[in-house]
Amino acid sequence: MGTASLSHEASADGATAFRVTRVVTDERPWARWLLIGVTVTFLSLFLVVPLAAVFAEAFRKGLGAYLASFRDPNALAAIRLTLLTAAIAVPANLVFGVAAAWCIAKFEFRGKSLLISLIDIPFAVSPVVSGLIYMLLFGMQGWFGPWLAERGIQVIFAVPGIVLATIFVTFPFVARELIPLMQEQGTEEEQAAVSLGASGWQTFRRVTLPNIKWALLYGVILSNARAMGEFGAVSVVSGHIRGKTNTMPLHVEILYNEYNFVAAFAVASLLALLALATLVLKTLVEWQMQRQVTEALELREET
């Protein structure tokens, strides 16, 4: 009793919550404020300043110069290619992630943990190596390159290669979010649905999907951010053909290397906005997931 007193604080969602302040396990005020000060300074200098720099450099020569950067047809082509790449890679990995999570989380079979490790592999492969392995498959000295070239199909230094490399680097995101969640949720609700006469699809759509929708969205947000921002892997397979095989990050590189800083930072500012949107959405989804977890815990608690 002497060690704990109840203080009252309002949490962000408007509800109130009681927090126990533990005197014994809290640092002295000076130590606490020192730590907070170090953290705030470190994070702002280290993280916020670069972000601010992107916008400052982009607007260095005024709004007119900034907007002019987007009148360049090559910039527009880069934006289009980036959107196209994400629009193919994200849904492809979404379908894969759901399928993988379903068989891994809802069934017991041999070799499951090996499968989980294999799914994680792309995270362990560096971006440049990720691009390189597709070169080895589809490049002119690769396994399938010459065969495909005879038939007029170009993968490397063309859009298919960019899409494939992007799929590779964003491969595990959705599956990684879903597998632990679905494993934790177990199969009781699905069994109940099946025993109540629901078909496989009905079970998935009406019971499983509502339970995993936030995690699914979370995975999609993360893989979209990576898909639109990937640089190393795409750089290897793209060939940097202006207006054709340049994604936004590659276009930034070209402009920067030509000392066209305003244009480079202008395109970069769009990517920075994408990053900010990603952070906001991610935080909102995290709150939702937190809420869902709390509710699930309450539901499981014995009354």
Binding site: E189, Q191, A192, R206, V207, P210, N211, E295, L299
Partner: peptide, 9 residues
Amino acid sequence: FQHYALFRH
């Protein structure tokens, strides 16, 4: 079911 398996959503 033992833990009811109600659909929480």
